[in-house]
Every structure is written in structure tokens, then in C-alpha cells.
Design a protein around this nucleic acid. Structure first.
Length: 958
RNA sequence: AGGCGGAUAGCUCAGUUGGUAGAGCGCCUCCUUUACACGGAGGAUGUCGUCGGUUCGAGCCCGGCUCCGCCUACCA
């Protein structure tokens, strides 16, 4: 079977020779077909075999929310992760990419509640169990959309190991983690001032609160009358400032700075609350009060402000909550009871005015806390919640990065990571939602003891009563995500997968969830597994629109990856943008599309999109997705396709095939050269991938394929393959051509899986090429092919590189002359040349026919003096010079054009020479710079000087 | 307020340990040559934000400034 060139049975149709195919690559013709093939044959599945000797490479996907549809950010993540996975799989690792989804507590609950609202009902009418059942049903119906889209992107996940953060297996892990932390005293429950979302009526963690600057705020001043009832007959007032007048209903103190001499007389005094029957102490607090700010007097509302809460604790102040959970005023608000909080604000101000206590207001910009999910202003409230004590967990996580056990790339992010962990606050993990992991805690109706247990308990562990009710809260979504790298491998059981694949290698994700998720996984992994959950954290920037703005439905600048892949007309894009836009913003939503994509999208294909995303540096925070760039990579895929067509046309019927190794001892210069250059490109690509510089890796391969393989090697191969030529040379060239093409396909496969597999299936090659023994028997596919290396697939050859560089410089210079003189293609020229550098002259002599073919002229070596005095020897000769070589092209010139060209070249050369000479004239440079630098500068100056003289001579002759 | 990042060709961005500035797109000229017009050949385009310092030498190292972005905290 070693000569079998037909595709494996069951693989997509590859019977048609590539040379007979259309000249344009059509991604849609093969992408879905290939993915189905890969998946159907389980080609992405990790071995899971403990006897498999290969090292493992494991990567857990950042599980997308079930609510989501794929956006460009996902596409970016998936592409990076897929390249890493495919690369390692090809490089001889047992690679495992664990896929899955996150149940996304609040996000999902909000979506389903919105559906219910449309049906005219709500979750309370349904009841908890029915509601949860409804969410599961919804998840089953629409939750998988994103998984289908992941496949369109070519994600080579092991679908047999797919997980969902709310599935029963992971619930076991969650319970285990919770109970263990509780046993260790790291989980506690208690009343704290928390972030309350009045709309969804749940508590939020600090991370779920976003701060938004608003300049429409005001600083409102009002007076508290001094209470004279303490017998001293005091009168007067103190004026306080507030941005939230309604909270004064919960004031339980007024604070001044102890050293503020303006208020010394108030020490120990009281003020009278104007609306509720309360006498309020004036307290001294140096921590809370900045005497320079405002009046230097602060109203203290312990129940509704973090600083006031802390102050209240210091002074033992009562904490009076004035809001209901829905944000309306409660009974403590007296006459304002029942008002919504912002109405209450107005009302309080108005009443203060009526009482003559208002003391004016001024504009004030302030940042307001916004709920990430509901968009409402978050209310600080005192509430009893579950917390994780973070400090003991954070320490090992800090150590791991400090001692290098865990690497963060790009390294700049380390500082951010440390800063957050060193100032970490306890994590509020309970949520007043229904969709999520229920907290494994049971309240005893008899003794109020709380039983925390892995299994549902039958009786209270304290008093034995069976009057138990489970805690009504669920856990923060991120609690289960934090366990993801090991819970998906079977933890808490000691499964073979957990043994084999933990710790994972890489965690690739956006920097926006460094705290939310990455840091928590590190803490949880270290705590429960005793080992970091992954060895490297790879952070990428966020994908934005063409203007660098965040993609949002309101702005209408959301680019759907599927549209980029499949193509979309302007009308379709407009329709989608307007449909997604909020009511009333439809017109605005179309603006972006009209401005940037007046012609819609062509069918760019997955590979082009992937290459585009890969080409952005991971160093930058923003990835401004440019559709022009996508187009460029679409063109690249087409270039590759056509290069392959050329190669296969020349291979057809010759018996040449890829063997996984280059020819033993290639003789022809272009063959030696391309193999040497392939080695350089492969080194750069490998280094790029391993260093997480996929931009470097993709650039190296792109420029090798286009600039060297296509632009030079294929052109050089044409004369070598010409009919009636040297048969041995042609054979060697075909062997080189097919090998380099095949190696390119393997190298590019992690980045461009579809077009490479499509072409590769048609490349004549030895069977079982590069397949690891462990994968023997599986259908033939690039998925298992060995990733090419310089050592095996290329041949080092510095001499060939230097010689072709000479040839290229000469050919380019000759082409410039042709172009500048508008010589028609058919016009043959004679190029008279002389060599000053014997090595270079030898190259031209040896490769004369190739140079002649590429430069479009016959070569004739002449004495150097003839070129120096071109006018005397050749009529109307254009003269060009490359390093170590001179040439004249007789009978072609238009003196004016020639003068222009020579002058332009002289100008450029002059600038370079000036800089060099200035440098060399500096004695300190000669003295102190490294010898090789000085030597090089001298050499460069000399050859530049020579060229300049020659150009000037040529110019003078015109 | 503190921290971080950015400022390089018309646009979007690379630039490895300091040693003569790069790519893609766009632009100009020519070319329907048997892989490719999603192409080929050639060409034009930069005070590397600004001021100062270190150095023989700075896009790169150090400091100040300006503008932009992000993050964290907080402003009664």
C-alpha cells in the first residue's frame, strides 16, 4: 500500500486531481465536509491510555456561556487554542482539549426570565422546581448553538469529554469543594455589607460590579439641627454633604475629624433627625473624615455605604436598613415608605427644603456601581451571605507565579495578577438565584444549626431533628468554573484522566477574566490538587470593531464570525444589525455597517479568519479586527491553493511523491536554497508557537510561502522542469517541490486546518506518512501528521542562501531596469555584466540560464572597464549595480528615465553612505564599538562608495 | 487618586540582547506570461508623540511632559 495515492475510504472525495480544479479556492466546498470527517472518526480524541508513552498536552476550554452565540472574542480564543492543540498533537503529544459550557447563573436566568415575561408570567408564578426545569429545557433547545459554531471554526476538541458546569458529575465536585472549604474554616456565613442588585434581587461579588463615571450627579448640602435636649441648651446646626440624600434616613451618626478646631465644641453632642424620631451622636473619626472636603462633616449611614459600615463597626453604631430588597423604601423611612429609591431622593430633598434645612447643591461627577448583568445601580445592603476567606488561598497562588511554577504570558500581566491577589477581599459566593448549584447547607428548624454535607442529610448534625430545609441560595457561577481544569477530568474521583492529564499545560483566555476565573482556578487547583491547574496562562487582547470600540448591539458594530466565514451581503448585515439593536436604535445600528462594509463580506472562509486573528500580537490589549486583513489572508489561502495546483500539475504522472524527507543530496541551487529557507521558516514557526507568539509564527510561514516559495522557488522551478531539459534535474526538482509543499501543508495545518487538509489529501505521498504508532489504523489525515522540523524536513545550506541572495539582487535590479523603461514582456534584452566579487561572479556564471530566465534577458560577461565606460561600448545602455556586480543593458534607454532612476538610487545610497561615513569619522566609535560592528561598517561603506562612484559614472555618460 | 498599557508609512500594526526603519491594506506605473488578477513586476511614502539624560551610537535604556485607552480603589 505504500504507493497508494487515493484517499482513505470514507474520507471526503479527493479523487479529482487538484490540477483540474477551479483556480479559486472555495472554502465552503470543503470545510464542513472535513470537520464532519475528523469528528466522525474521533480524530480529536485523546488516547486516555496510561500505556501511551507520549507526553500529554492538555488545555481546558474557557467554557462559553450557554446563553451565548459565538462572537469574535470566542472565535479568537478558539483559534488560539486550536492552534496550540493541533500543533502539539502533530508534534508528538497526546493532546487533549476539553470542551464544554458554563451554566452562567445570572446571565441564563435573566434570559429565561425574559422569555417568561414575554409569555406573561414569571418565575415566582412557576415556582422554583418548574422554573429550573424550564431553564434546562431551554438549555437543551438552544444551548448547543455555540457548540455547532465552534465546529465551524475548526475547533479540534475532544467531544467525547465534553462537560457542562451544572451537570451532576460537576455538582459532586462542587459539593466536595464547598464542604472541604467549610471543614477547613475557609467558608463562613454572616451579615456583611454586600452589593445588592435590586432588579435581579441577588447579591453580586465585587467583580460583577462595574464602576461607571457619571457627571450628572450632584453634591447636596443640608443641615442637621444640633439637639439641645441634653440640657446644655445648645442650638445651631451642622451642615453635611451627600450625593445620596435618601440614605440620610438611615443615618446613625454624624462624624467630624477629631482635630478639626472648627468643631471642637461639638464633641460629644447630638443632632436631631428631621424625619424620624432619632437622636444622632456626633462622633470623631479620623479615618472617615477628611477635614478638607466639603464642610468637614460627614453623615454616617452604616447600612448603605462601605466606609460608613466600617465606621459603624468602629463606633458600635446601629445599622438601619432603609430599603426593601427591590429598592423601595421600607418602614424605617417613615413618611417616605414605599417610594422607589430615586423618587425618595427627590422627596427627601424637597422636604428638607420645606423644613429650611437645604443648604444648596453643586454639580459633582461621581462613579456609580452598576450591575454587570442587569445594568441597574447596585445598592450596598447588609445581608447574610456565604463567603470564602481568600487570603490563605491567595498566598500559594502568588508564590506559584513568583517561583515560576506558573507562568503568565505576556509577562506584563503578572503585576496585575499580584496586585489583585495581594489586596484580595473575601469572595461572596452565595446568590439569590434559582439557576445554579444549590448550596449544600441545611438549616435546622429546631435548633437553627446549619449542617453542611456532601450528601443530603436526614437529620440535623447538632440536635438530630429532621426539620431540615436546604439553604435557598445557589453558588456564584465562578465557583464551579474555578474547579473546571480538574472537575472535568473526574475530580473528586482519582480517575485515569485526572492522573494522566492534570495539571494541564496551558490556560488560554482573555485578560478580562484574569480575576474572575484564572486566579480562582489557580487558587482552587493549588488548594484541592496541591498543584497548579496549568503551567502557563496565555492572555489575549479583546476583539473590538474596526475603530477600536467594544462591539455592542446598540452600536451595531458586532461582527458575527459566521458572516465572515460564509459571506454576507450588505442587506443581510444591515438586517442583522437592526434586528439586534434595542428599540429605537435601529437606524444608528446600520451606520457602522454602511460605513465599513458597504459591499458586505465575501466568503472569506474559516482559515482566513483564523489566520487574521492569529496575526495580531498578543501583547496588545485590543484586537481591532480589520476585514481588509481577513481579505488578505483569504488571498493567501488562494495563493496556497494555486501554488499547490502548479505543483501537482507538474507532478502528475511522474511518480514523484512526498516521503516525509527532502532529497538526500540536492544539487541544484534553487532546490538547496528552498530547503534551507524552509528550515529557517520552520524554526521561526516552532519558536513562535512555543513562545505563544502565534503572530510571529503565522508571519514566518506566510512570508515563506508567498515571498520565497511562490515568488522565487516556483518561478525558478519552471526552467528546471521545462520539457526537454535535464531529466535528473527535473526529477530532483519534483522531489523537492513535492516535499516542500507537503511540509508547508503540515506546518500550516494548525493555523489553516481546512485548506491544508483539502490540498494534502490530493498530494501524492507515501502512505502513513508521519503517523505516530499510536494513531496507526486511523484514517489518514493531517491531524496526525508529524509537525515538520528543520532537522528532519529541511537542509541547512548557508552557501545556497548567500548565492540565491546574489541572484535575487541581480534579477531584481534587472527587472527594475525593465520596468522603468517600460520594456514589453516580449522584448528580449542582453545584460552585460562584470563581477568585482569573484564568489558572486561565479554564481552568475553557474546559474546563467536561470538568471536569464527570471531577468528576461541573455547574460554576457564583459570586462569591468566596459561597464564603467558604458557609453563607449554600448549604445543607450542602462546601467545597474548590485553589491559586487555591475551590469549594463544596451539599447534600451530613454535617457531622461534613466537619469531619473539613477538619481533616485543615488539619493538613497547617498543618505546611507553619509550616515556610515559620519559614524566612521567618529574616533570614539572606532575605538569603543565592537570590532565586528566597525568592520562591517567599513565594508559597507566601501561597497556603497564603489556603487556610488559607478552610478555617478553612468550618470555622467548619459 | 493610584496602577498598567499605548503613541512607528495615509490606515491597522510588527520591530528579537541598543548597530543603516518593516509587513498587510491603500496609493502610482506597467503586465490578461500555460499556478494564481483573490495575480505578477516595479515604484512612492517615516523628525519612530515631545523635551531632556545615559551611550561612540537610542524606535529600543532612564527621567519629565502631552494625548489616548484600560484596570483598581474611592470621592461624604
Amino acid at each position: 500500500m505504500s504507493d497508494d495515492q487515493s484517499p482513505p475510504s470514507g474520507s471526503p472525495d479527493s479523487a479529482q486531481p487538484l490540477s483540474a480544479l477551479p483556480t479559486t479556492y472555495a472554502p465552503s466546498a470543503c470545510e464542513q465536509r472535513w470537520y464532519a470527517f475528523w469528528e466522525e472518526h474521533g480524530l480529536f480524541e485523546a488516547s486516555g491510555d496510561e500505556a501511551d508513552p507520549r507526553p500529554t498536552y492538555t488545555l481546558a476550554i474557557p467554557p462559553p456561556n450557554v446563553t451565548g452565540t459565538l462572537h469574535m472574542g470566542h472565535a479568537c480564543r478558539v483559534t488560539f487554542e486550536d492552534v496550540l492543540t493541533r500543533y502539539h498533537r502533530m508534534a508528538g503529544y497526546d493532546a487533549l482539549w476539553v470542551p464544554g459550557m458554563d451554566h452562567a447563573g445570572i446571565a441564563t436566568q435573566v434570559v429565561v426570565e425574559r422569555l417568561l415575561a414575554r409569555e406573561g408570567t414569571d418565575r415566582h408564578a412557576l415556582g422554583r422546581d418548574a422554573f429550573v426545569e424550564r431553564v434546562w429545557k431551554w438549555k437543551a433547545e438552544s444551548g448547543g448553538a455555540i457548540l455547532k459554531q465552534l465546529r465551524r471554526l475548526g475547533a479540534s476538541c475532544d467531544w467525547s469529554r465534553e462537560h457542562f458546569t451544572l451537570e451532576p458529575e460537576l455538582n459532586r465536585a462542587v459539593r466536595e469543594a464547598f464542604v472541604r472549604l467549610h471543614e477547613e474554616g475557609l467558608i463562613y456565613r454572616g451579615p456583611r455589607l454586600v452589593n445588592w442588585d435590586v432588579k435581579t434581587q441577588t447579591v453580586l461579588s465585587n467583580l460583577e460590579v462595574e464602576n461607571e463615571e457619571r457627571d450628572n450627579g450632584e453634591l447636596f448640602d443640608f443641615a442637621y439641627p444640633i439637639d439641645g435636649e441634653d440640657g446644655a441648651g445648645e442650638s445651631g446646626e451642622v451642615v453635611v454633604s451627600t450625593t445620596r440624600p435618601e440614605t440620610m434616613l438611615g443615618d446613625t451618626a454624624v462624624a467630624i475629624h477629631p482635630d478639626d478646631e472648627r468643631y471642637t465644641h461639638l464633641h460629644g453632642k447630638f443632632v436631631r433627625h428631621p424625619f424620624v424620631d432619632r437622636r444622632i451622636p456626633i462622633i470623631c473619626d479620623a479615618k472617615l473624615v477628611d477635614p478638607e472636603f466639603g464642610t468637614g462633616v460627614v453623615k454616617v449611614t452604616p447600612a448603605h455605604d462601605p466606609n460608613d459600615f466600617a465606621t459603624g463597626k468602629r463606633h458600635g453604631l446601629p445599622e438601619i436598613t432603609v430599603f426593601h430588597l427591590d429598592g423601595t423604601m421600607n418602614g424605617e423611612a417613615g413618611e417616605f415608605e414605599g417610594l422607589e429609591r430615586f423618587q425618595a431622593r427627590k422627596a427627601v430633598k424637597q422636604r428638607l427644603g420645606e423644613l429650611g434645612l437645604a443648604r444648596g447643591s453643586k454639580k459633582h461627577t461621581l462613579t456609580v456601581p452598576i450591575s454587570q448583568r442587569s445594568g441597574t445601580i447596585v445598592e450596598p445592603m447588609i445581608s447574610t451571605q456565604w463567603f470564602v476567606k481568600m487570603e490563605p488561598l491567595a498566598k500559594p497562588a502568588i508564590d506559584a507565579v513568583e517561583d515560576g511554577t506558573l507562568q503568565i504570558l505576556p509577562k506584563e500581566w503578572e503585576k496585575t495578577y499580584f496586585h489583585w491577589l495581594r489586596n484580595i477581599q473575601d469572595w461572596c459566593i452565595s446568590r439569590q438565584l434559582w439557576w445554579g448549584h444549590p448550596i449544600p447547607a441545611w438549616h435546622c428548624g429546631a435548633c437553627a444549626h446549619i449542617t453542611v454535607s456532601r450528601e443530603d442529610p436526614a437529620a440535623c448534625e447538632s440536635c438530630g431533628a429532621d426539620a431540615l430545609t436546604q439553604d435557598e441560595d445557589v453558588l456564584d457561577t465562578w465557583f464551579s468554573s474555578g474547579l473546571w481544569p480538574f472537575s472535568t477530568l473526574g475530580w473528586p474521583d482519582e480517575t485515569p484522566d485526572l492522573r494522566r492529564y492534570y495539571p494541564t499545560q496551558d490556560m488560554e483566555t482573555g485578560y478580562d477574566i484574569l480575576f474572575f476565573w484564572v486566579a480562582r482556578m489557580v487558587m482552587m487547583g493549588l488548594h484541592f490538587m496541591g498543584e497548579v491547574p496549568f503551567k502557563r496562562v496565555l492572555l489575549a487582547g479583546l476583539v473590538t470593531d474596526e475603530d477600536g470600540k467594544k462591539m455592542s448591539k446598540t452600536k451595531g458594530n458586532v461582527v458575527d464570525p459566521m458572516d465572515v466565514i460564509d459571506g454576507a451581503t450588505l442587506e443581510a448585515l444591515l438586517a442583522k444589525a437592526t434586528a439586534a439593536a434595542p428599540l429605537g436604535k435601529e437606524a444608528q445600528a446600520g451606520k457602522y455597517v454602511r460605513k465599513h462594509y458597504p459591499e458586505g463580506f465575501a466568503e472569506y472562509g474559516t482559515d482566513a479568519l483564523r489566520m487574521t486573528l492569529l496575526s495580531y500580537s498578543p501583547q496588545s490589549m485590543r484586537i481591532k479586527l480589520s476585514i481588509k486583513r481577513v481579505e488578505g489572508y483569504r488571498n493567501f489561502a488562494n495563493k496556497l491553493w494555486n501554488a499547490a495546483r502548479y505543483a501537482l500539475m507538474n507532478l502528475e504522472g511522474t511518480g514523484a511523491q512526498a516521503t516525509g524527507a527532502p532529497p538526500e543530496e540536492p544539487k541544484a541551487l534553487p532546490n538547496r536554497w528552498i530547503l534551507a529557507r524552509l528550515g529557517k521558516a520552520l524554526d521561526a514557526a516552532t519558536k513562535g508557537i512555543e513562545d505563544y507568539r502565534l503572530d510571529d509564527a503565522s508571519r514566518a510561514l506566510y512570508s515563506f510561502v508567498w515571498d520565497e516559495f511562490c515568488d522565487w522557488y516556483l518561478e525558478l522551478s519552471k526552467p528546471m522542469l521545462a520539457e526537454g531539459g535535464d531529466a535528473a534535474l527535473a526529477q530532483e526538482t519534483r522531489a523537492t517541490l513535492v516535499h516542500v509543499l507537503e511540509a508547508i501543508l503540515r506546518a500550516l495545518h494548525p493555523m489553516m486546518p481546512f485548506v491544508t487538509e483539502e490540498i494534502w489529501s490530493r498530494v501524492p505521498k507515501r502512505d502513513a506518512l508521519g503517523v505516530h504508532p499510536h494513531d496507526a489504523g486511523k484514517p489518514r489525515s493531517l491531524i496526525f501528521a508529524r509537525f515538520p522540523t528543520a532537522a528532519v524536513d529541511a537542509r541547512e545550506d548557508a552557501a545556497a542562501e548567500a548565492d540565491v541572495a546574489t541572484l535575487q539582487a541581480f534579477v531584481s535590479a534587472a527587472r527594475t531596469v525593465r520596468a522603468e523603461h517600460d520594456l514589453p514582456r516580449a522584448r528580449r534584452i542582453e545584460i552585460c555584466w562584470a563581477g568585482d566579487d569573484e564568489t558572486k561572479a561565479a554564481v552568475l556564471r553557474r546559474e546563467e540560464s536561470l538568471v536569464a530566465a527570471l531577468a528576461g534577458g541573455a547574460l554576457r560577461e564583459v570586462p569591468g572597464a566596459q561597464i564603467d565606460a558604458a557609453a563607449d561600448h554600448f549604445s543607450h545602455a542602462a546601467v545597474f549595480v548590485t553589491d559586487g556586480l555591475r551590469a549594463a543593458v544596451p539599447d534600451v534607454i530613454d535617457p531622461a528615465k534613466e537619469r531619473e532612476r539613477l538619481n533616485r538610487e543615488l539619493k538613497k545610497l547617498g543618505k546611507e553612505l553619509d550616515a556610515l561615513e559620519k559614524k566612521l569619522a567618529n574616533p570614539k566609535f572606532v575605538e569603543r564599538a565592537p570590532a565586528e560592528v566597525v568592520e562591517k561598517s567599513r565594508g559597507d561603506a566601501a561597497s556603497l562608495g564603489e556603487r556610488k562612484a559607478q552610478l555617478e559614472a553612468a550618470l555622467a555618460q548619459l
